[in-house]
């Protein structure tokens, strides 16, 4: 226990979780490019996709450095299988309609905002620098998705109905966001990782208040089994990876 090797492995795993969340969500959001319900939102979702993929690059790059086996961020993104991915199941769920995309986004944006807010003070210098930079972007993202939840929930009968359906459908995936394992516990105790218990309190407060303001009902707390941080996923991730990875796997070392 407490060996340098275990510490590096913990940190590598933790950075994969942070990086994979943003890579998979970024990929999902990029599917809206050219299909947005209006030009401004098409552009907004594509911008947010870029920010997320950009943050994933920084996080996976650092993960590769810590692992020390010479893997780059591209190696980690393109040459791992579903079982090696550590993203939350929420983020691999299909886009559905605009309400589904925005509810998924809002649930994650609140989580991401408070995660970065905590990681700004991380005792790991490299991770802290990524957090300081990303927090500014996450602030823009959260303002965007939160305003949409208010507008859609407290909007027309149809927008309210669709948003409530999305909230009900996605709520069971939010339980695993706060499931801390030994890696989280060790790194939190060392002042490196964000404390999931604290993030859960902030997340619940913001989500509950926003849903109430948007005249949406908070579903009962019935959650699906978690395990994505250990490599368990829904069937959707395989389809994402096959699309995302086909080019580098078909033409290894292809460059622009």
């Amino acid at each position: 226990m407490g060996s340098a090797k275990q510490h590096d492995n913990d940190l590598f795993e933790y950075l994969l979780r942070l990086g994979d969340d943003r890579l998979i969500l970024g990929h999902r959001l990029s599917e809206w490019c050219g299909h947005g319900p209006m030009l401004e939102e098409d552009i907004a979702l594509s911008n947010i996709a870029l920010d997320n993929v950009g943050q994933a690059i920084s996080l996976l790059q650092l993960a590769g450095e810590i692992e020390g086996k010479g893997r780059s961020e591209d190696d980690l993104a393109y040459f791992r299988e579903t079982i090696d991915y550590r993203n939350l199941m929420l983020l691999e769920q299909p886009n559905g309609d605009f309400a589904h995309t925005l509810v998924r986004q809002f649930f994650f944006d609140v989580y991401s905002y408070y995660t970065y807010l905590a990681l700004e003070k991380s005792l790991h210098e490299g991770l802290g620098a990524i957090a300081v930079k990303s927090l500014r972007e996450a602030t823009y993202h959260l303002r965007h998705s939160r305003e949409w939840i208010l507008r859609l929930g407290d909007g027309t009968e149809e927008s309210h109905r669709r948003t409530q359906v999305a909230v009900n459908h996605l709520w069971p995936f939010t339980g695993e966001m706060f499931e801390a394992d030994e890696i989280d516990e060790r790194l939190t105790a060392q002042g490196i990782a964000a404390d999931l218990k604290k993030i859960q309190l902030d997340w619940r407060k913001v989500v509950n208040e926003t849903l109430a303001e948007a005249t949406l009902e908070k579903p009962e707390d019935r959650f699906l089994p978690g395990g994505s941080r250990q490599g368990k996923h829904t069937e959707h991730l395989g389809f994402i990876l096959s699309e995302m990875q086909i080019l580098p796997r078909s033409y290894p070392d292809a460059g622009w």
């Binding site: 401004e40 939102e41 552009i43 907004a44 911008n47 947010i48 870029l50 920010d51 823009y140 303002r143 965007h144």
Partner: peptide, 13 residues
């Protein structure tokens, strides 16, 4: 303000 996200990441509409 039309949108906080413009034609590039650094611009708003």
């Amino acid at each position: 303000l039309t949108s906080e996200f413009g034609s590039t990441a650094c611009k708003a509409f």
